[in-house]
Deep mutational scan, measured.
Amino acid sequence: TGQSYENMVTEIMSMGYEREQVIAALRASFNNPDRAVEYLLMGIP
């Protein structure tokens, strides 16, 4: 849902990432938050 997506974005942003980076990582990871954080740390393949 939209609210849980926003919660994911906010939670990952709280780790120090910009909203645009978080959204790009979530898009690349098909909204998998664990993989999105991994992409933010290691780069999107």
Rank of each mutant, 00 (worst) to 15 (best):
T1I: 08
T1H: 03
T1Q: 08
T1A: 11
T1R: 11
G2N: 15
Q3E: 15
Q3K: 15
S4N: 09
S4I: 14
S4F: 12
S4A: 09
S4K: 12
S4V: 08
S4L: 05
S4W: 06
Y5S: 09
Y5Q: 08
Y5D: 14
E6M: 05
E6T: 05
E6N: 09
E6R: 03
E6W: 05
E6A: 04
E6K: 09
E6D: 04
N7D: 11
N7Y: 09
N7C: 07
N7G: 12
N7F: 07
M8H: 10
V9M: 02
V9L: 05
V9G: 00
T10L: 10
E11W: 03
E11D: 12
E11K: 14
I12Y: 05
I12K: 00
I12A: 01
M13S: 09
M13N: 02
M13A: 09
M13K: 01
S14V: 02
M15I: 15
Y17R: 01
Y17V: 02
Y17G: 01
E18W: 00
E18S: 11
R19N: 03
R19G: 02
R19V: 01
R19Y: 05
R19W: 02
R19K: 10
R19T: 01
R19I: 03
E20Q: 10
E20N: 13
E20C: 09
E20M: 06
E20D: 13
Q21M: 11
Q21K: 14
Q21W: 03
V22F: 02
V22K: 02
V22Q: 03
V22T: 07
I23F: 07
I23S: 07
I23N: 06
I23C: 07
I23Q: 12
A24L: 08
A24Y: 04
A24V: 06
A25K: 02
A25E: 01
L26E: 03
L26G: 02
L26F: 03
L26C: 01
R27C: 04
A28T: 11
S29P: 02
S29C: 09
F30E: 15
F30L: 13
N31T: 03
N31W: 08
N31D: 09
N31Q: 06
N31G: 09
N32G: 02
N32E: 12
N32A: 08
N32W: 00
D34T: 14
D34P: 07
D34C: 08
D34S: 12
D34L: 08
D34K: 15
D34F: 05
D34V: 12
D34E: 14
R35A: 13
A36E: 00
V37P: 04
V37L: 14
E38D: 15
E38F: 05
E38V: 04
E38Q: 08
E38I: 11
E38C: 06
Y39T: 09
Y39R: 13
Y39K: 15
Y39P: 02
Y39L: 11
L40V: 01
L40F: 03
L40G: 02
L40S: 01
L40E: 03
L41H: 04
L41I: 08
L41P: 03
L41G: 15
L41T: 15
M42C: 09
M42R: 14
M42A: 14
M42S: 14
G43E: 13
G43V: 06
G43Q: 12
G43R: 13
G43P: 08
I44P: 15
I44W: 04
P45S: 11
P45G: 06
P45L: 15
P45Q: 09
